[in-house]
C-alpha cells in the first residue's frame, strides 16, 4: 500500500491509502471527537462532530474527518475557531434532544456548549444510527430502522422482528449515547405479540396497538 504524506495540525503525518483523516490523526495521537463513528461499522458521517477544516489546492473546506480519505499534501486543521464554533452549535442542538447524555456533556464542557441554549425537545435520539447500523451490518437482523425524514426522522423497532431477535441480544443498548434506544425498545415491547398470544388483528401498517386500527 502506498504511503501518503499529509499535515494534520502542523504535524507531518505518513498515512496509507484508504485511511480516513480520523485514522491518520489517531496515528499521531490527535483525537477528533466522534459520536456516530464505530470501528466495526461502515463510515456514516451523520453527526458531523468530527468536522475538520482541510485545504485542498489552497481552497479551505469543511469535511467529516471520519469519512474523508487522506490525500497527498492535504492540510488538515482539527481545531480552529471555525471548527470549534461549529462543534459547539452542533452539541447545543443535540443537547436540546438529549440533555442528560454523558458523552454530550463531556464534549459540551470541552467546547463551551450551553446545554440550555435551545428549547428542550427531549426525543433523546441524536440520530447517530449506531443501533440501526449495528443491527443491520453486524447482527444482520434489521430489527431497528429509521422512519420518516427531515426533522421527523426517528428510529423504530420492527415489532415482528424485535419480538424474535431482541430479547437475547440487546447488543445495541450499550452503543446508544443517550437513553433513546431503551425508550424505543420499551415502546416496541408493548407492541410485540407475546409468544402464543393472539396475533394482532390490525391490518394497518402503522405502529398502532392493533386495537383501534384505521384499517378495520
Amino acid at each position: 500500500m502506498s504511503e501518503i504524506h499529509l499535515q494534520i495540525d502542523g504535524k507531518e503525518v505518513v498515512a496509507s491509502e484508504g485511511m480516513t483523516i480520523l485514522d491518520a490523526a489517531k496515528t499521531v495521537g490527535i483525537a477528533i471527537p466522534t459520536l456516530c463513528h464505530h470501528e466495526k461499522l461502515e463510515p456514516y458521517g451523520g453527526c458531523r462532530i468530527c468536522t475538520v477544516e482541510v485545504e485542498v489546492r489552497g481552497w479551505p473546506k469543511l469535511v467529516a474527518g471520519c469519512i474523508y480519505p487522506v490525500e497527498k499534501d492535504l492540510v488538515v486543521r482539527t481545531r480552529s475557531e471555525k471548527v470549534d464554533k461549529i462543534r459547539k452549535v452542533l452539541l447545543e442542538e443535540m443537547l436540546a434532544h438529549a440533555p442528560d447524555a454523558e458523552e454530550l456533556q463531556a464534549l459540551a464542557k470541552e467546547y463551551g456548549a450551553d446545554r440550555d441554549r435551545f428549547e428542550k425537545e427531549p426525543s433523546f435520539c441524536i440520530h447517530c444510527g449506531l443501533c440501526v447500523r449495528y443491527c443491520a451490518e453486524i447482527k444482520k437482523k434489521h430489527a431497528v430502522g429509521f422512519v420518516d425524514r427531515g426533522s421527523n426522522r426517528e428510529i423504530s423497532f420492527i415489532p415482528e422482528i424485535a419480538s424474535k431477535e431482541c430479547w437475547d441480544c440487546k447488543e445495541c443498548f450499550p452503543l446508544c449515547p443517550t437513553s433513546a434506544l431503551q425508550a424505543a425498545y420499551v415502546l416496541a415491547e408493548s407492541l410485540i405479540p407475546q409468544p402464543d398470544a393472539e396475533v394482532s388483528s390490525c391490518s394497518c401498517s402503522c405502529s398502532c396497538s392493533g386495537k383501534s386500527g384505521t384499517g378495520e
Partner: peptide, 20 residues
C-alpha cells in the same frame, strides 16, 4: 424542514432551530 433527509445534524437540527 420536511425535505431534508434528516441524516446529518447540521442540516436536520440547524434547519429546525433556524425555522423556530
Amino acid at each position: 424542514k420536511d425535505e431534508s433527509c434528516g441524516k446529518c445534524t447540521p442540516c436536520r437540527e440547524g434547519i429546525r432551530q433556524m425555522l423556530k
